[in-house]
């Protein structure tokens, strides 16, 4: 006889929806920071801060949903993995928000100068947004192959970071007056690289929630 734990299943669905929402906010904030960077738009950069607040609130909300579920439902097996994975994932999502905010904060100090002088950074921005979207989709749809694809993407981000660094060193060598600007861009590139790492962590927790095995890559 099949018994549906309908109240519990509803609560799990609510958790999934909130995870999608938080994931979408993370994509948003990276997009905002990126746009601000390439448009040299300080206002956009300031909006990223507001987004960051939303992400922090969602982290607290999801945390309390998870704690309530652990307390009320005493989940085991897959239910337990879904909830404990969510608890770990939101920490990485919150860090993604912080790092996007940090990128925006640097943009605000670039005095209108834009970031397109380093093509690798835009590649990194694009790839990290894809990774965040992919990892959350993989969680919600329990899609193992998508989660594994996210892990592969991180290698591209890491390669782009190395290229960005080399090109920024060249920029300084060509014109010493660009030193500060180049260092700012290097920090931005590093933040994108960290965002990629957090998305990787998220994908690893997705794999855990589906298979019960947590592999740690990096």
């Amino acid at each position: 006889m099949i018994i549906m734990r309908s109240r519990f299943d509803e609560q799990l669905n609510h958790l999934r929806k909130k995870m999608i929402e938080m994931g979408a906010e993370c994509e948003n904030i990276i997009a905002l920071a990126t746009k601000a960077l390439f448009d040299g738009n300080v206002e956009e950069a300031l909006r990223a801060k507001e987004e960051g607040i939303k992400i922090d609130e969602l982290e607290r909300e999801i945390e309390s949903i998870c704690l309530k579920l652990l307390l009320q439902q005493q989940p085991v097996a897959k239910d337990l993995r879904i909830i404990s994975a969510a608890l770990k994932m939101i920490t990485d999502m919150e860090r993604i928000g912080d790092q996007a905010e940090d990128i925006a904060a640097i943009v605000a100090t670039l005095n209108g100068r834009v970031g397109d002088e380093c093509i690798y950074i835009s590649a990194m921005a694009e790839a990290t947004i894809k990774m965040v979207t992919g990892s959350i989709d993989a969680y919600v749809n329990e899609d193992l192959s998508l989660a594994k694809e996210v892990l592969k993407h991180d290698d591209l981000v890491d390669e782009a970071f190395i290229s960005a660094k080399a090109s920024l060193i060249k920029m300084i060598a060509n014109n010493i007056n660009d030193g500060e600007y180049a260092l700012d861009l290097l920090m931005i590139a590093k933040y994108f690289e960290r965002i990629g790492d957090h998305a990787t962590n998220i994908a690893e927790w997705v794999i855990f929630s589906v298979t019960g095995i947590h592999q740690q890559g990096g």
Partner: peptide, 16 residues
């Protein structure tokens, strides 16, 4: 209880 092998075990212990 964290990763049962059999679907029937999973369904039983998760209360479904």
């Amino acid at each position: 209880f964290s990763n049962p092998k059999d679907k029937r075990t999973e369904d039983y212990i998760t209360g479904r």
